[in-house]
């Protein structure tokens, strides 16, 4: 099987050769795309909660609130990052089944997944997951409810800062609210492939 690398690059060079000058890379301040008036003087955790609500997400500040929410929704079986479970377990009383290994063969059994977030973006109401901090991509995606545990210190103000902090991780995903579609007649439906409920548990 031949590869077209050289022929493509040669066509690219041929296409660009006649240009008298090439368009310069504009200098710009990333601040231009920041919603500064939104951020001014705000506590980032509060703003994150507010902006998550705007995209139909939910921010909670105590494990007890999470448990109450899951109980109210009838979500009794879930997955939890093994590193988080020792601290959270005491809050999950009787009636919950929580596994610390996500078994993909029983994907339909998990109603919720609890994983650690690498951070969040207040401006857009976004949760940041990275391969090195998320215990299971599937555990954070397949269940109906995803709870991302976010440390207050890891909340970025804006998208620009979060881009600057992408770092070395080969897989970073930003989740801004629940999975959704408007494919059918433009009607918004949540929970298409990923979570129907996206929750941040903001911890100190």
């Amino acid at each position: 099987m031949t590869d077209d690398r050289e022929s493509i690059l040669s066509r690219v060079r041929g296409a660009l050769a006649p240009l008298h000058e090439r368009a310069p890379l504009p200098a710009y301040d990333s601040e231009i795309a920041v919603l500064r008036s939104l951020l001014a003087g705000r506590d980032l955790a509060e703003l994150l909660a507010e902006r998550m609500r705007r995209v139909n997400g939910l921010a909670l500040t105590s494990p007890a609130a999470v448990v109450a929410h899951l109980r109210a929704g009838g979500h009794r079986h879930g997955y939890c990052d093994p590193a988080l479970w020792p601290e959270l377990a005491p809050h999950f009383a009787d009636g919950f089944t929580v596994e610390t290994r996500f078994d993909r063969t029983r994907v339909d059994e998990y109603a919720f997944g609890i994983t650690r977030a690498a951070g969040a973006i207040a401006e857009s109401g976004t949760i940041i997951l990275k391969d090195r901090t998320t215990s299971s991509r599937l555990g954070a995606l397949a269940p109906w409810v995803h709870i991302a545990v976010v440390s207050r210190a890891d909340i970025f103000g804006d998208v620009t800062q979060a881009v600057a902090a992408l770092g070395e991780d080969r897989n970073v995903v930003w989740c801004t609210g629940p999975s959704k579609t408007a494919d059918v007649e433009g009607i918004l439906i949540e929970g298409v492939h990923g979570p129907g409920e996206q929750i941040a548990l903001i911890v100190p």
Binding site: V55, S124, N171, V172, V173, W174, C175, P178
Partner: peptide, 8 residues
């Protein structure tokens, strides 16, 4: 503001 899933 952002699409729901933005992957890098």
């Amino acid at each position: 503001d952002l699409t729901v899933y933005t992957e890098f």
